[in-house]
Structures are given as C-alpha cells and as structure tokens.
Design a protein around this nucleic acid. Structure first.
Lengths: 109, 109
DNA sequence: TGTGAATATTCCCGTCAATGAATATTTAGT
DNA sequence: ACTAAATATTCATTGACGGGAATATTCACA
C-alpha cells in the first residue's frame, strides 16, 4: 500500500476536501468557502492532494477546477481486501458459535 | 472517518507492522527482528499503534504480545463504501460505452 | 536479593508540515 | 496597458514525529 495516499488523507482538512470533492468538482474558492478556509490554505491543501495523486486539476480561465481521482482510493480498497477476509472469518466463527449455542439450548427442551 | 487510523497507517514502518500482525500476534522483539528495527523503535511504533487503537496487547510474563485490531480497518472499509459506488458507476458507464460502440460497429455489417 | 532477558522511557536532534500574513502571478475584460 | 478577481507562492513560526543512543523498568528464576 502507498503511504502517500494515507498521509494525504490523514489530515482532517484534506479528508474533508476529499469528501467534498466526492460530490463533484469544485474550484479553489468554492472549496475554501464550504470548509471555511482562507484562500491560501485551500490552495496549499489542494496542491498537496494533487501531488499525492488524489485530485486532478483542470484550468478554466481565471479559476482551477479540482476533481477527485478514484485510483488511489481503489488501491486502498484493494489493500483492505486481505483484512476483509480476516473479519469475515471472525463473523463466520461467531455465527458458528451462536449456532452451537442454539443447539445446546435446544437440548434443554 | 477517523484521521487517527489514517495517521497511524501513513508511516511506512507502522504499515509494515500492521501487515505483519495480520498474519498473527507477535512479541515486540519478533516484530523488531522481522522488520530489522532496533528494539526501542519497535516499542515506540507499537505504542503508537496501540494508542491509535490499531493493536491490542497481552502481557506474557517478560514479554508483550501484540495483535491486530480489526475495528479501525472495518471503519476505513465502511468509509470507502461511498467511493466504491463512484468507481462502480464509472465502470457501468464504461460498459455502456463499450456496448454502444459494439452496437454501432454491428451496424457497419 | 541478584542477574539476565525483554521491553519501555527519556533526551537530543533533524525534518516535515500546518498555519497565518504578506505578496506575487495569472487571466478576462475594458 | 490597467484593473479586479482568482489563485499561487514565499516567509516565519510552531508543533509533531522519527531515528539514535543511553538508561530505566519489569519479570522469571536461581
């Protein structure tokens, strides 16, 4: 797994930006407005996200429109695959346990 | 989503520790050996992971056995849910596009 | 109670990154 | 060319964190 992606998401403001952009592309100013950021901070965080590959940019005259890149999130999702198996296994074991419990309960009647 | 989890995973060594512990519990020393860490670094990273809730500890006499906690990873998985929909949608659109392409190809014959 | 093994903690240092303030750059329209 | 709007960059400050080295703690056992 790529720690660059994780590092980019590990900062609260940047995580909010990602969540915001998941609903659609926005300009720097719009990101700043919605998250109550000063303009330079919005620019900086978006630059960081861009360098981390989490975001793409399309210039539009005076402004720059940012939109989310899904690839890093897909990679993260892939990384989680092996862990998903782990907790699915434990749910299976819990299921078995509960079914065994029920069996032994039934024997009481 | 919890940035604590993301922050803990964003450091390469800690990510390796998580991956290592996904295969089973280990002592501090064993973690250090397998990842070529000096003992204090192993201790520190495991402490960090513990405070972030990614790891649990069971004392065993002289030693401490660490094992992975799945809950934070499950939370991360849940956070990814909404994004999964996004790329599944784009795959759907790609499917549609390819099917339209095929249709128009067929018209050539 | 003394010893060795396993682990934790402390201190120092360098680096990175976040913030705020100020300033520079780019672009469209006149 | 000039201006205003949108955005980027620079600079200084501060705090977090990672690595290394040294030391402290804990525990079983004799």
């Amino acid at each position: 797994m790529n720690t660059t992606t994780l590092g980019a998401l590990a900062e609260p403001t940047r995580l909010k930006i990602v969540e915001l952009l998941s609903k659609g592309p926005l300009t720097v100013g719009e990101v700043g407005n919605r998250l109550q950021l000063r303009q330079p901070q919005a620019s900086k965080h978006l630059k960081y996200l861009h360098e981390a590959g989490l975001v793409e940019m399309r210039p539009d005259a005076n402004r720059r429109i940012f939109h989310l890149r899904l690839e890093p999130l897909m990679e993260l999702d892939g990384w989680l695959d092996s862990y998903r198996k782990l907790w699915e296994d434990s749910f299976d074991r819990l299921d078995n346990y509960l079914m065994e419990l029920q069996k032994s309960d039934e024997q009481k009647f």
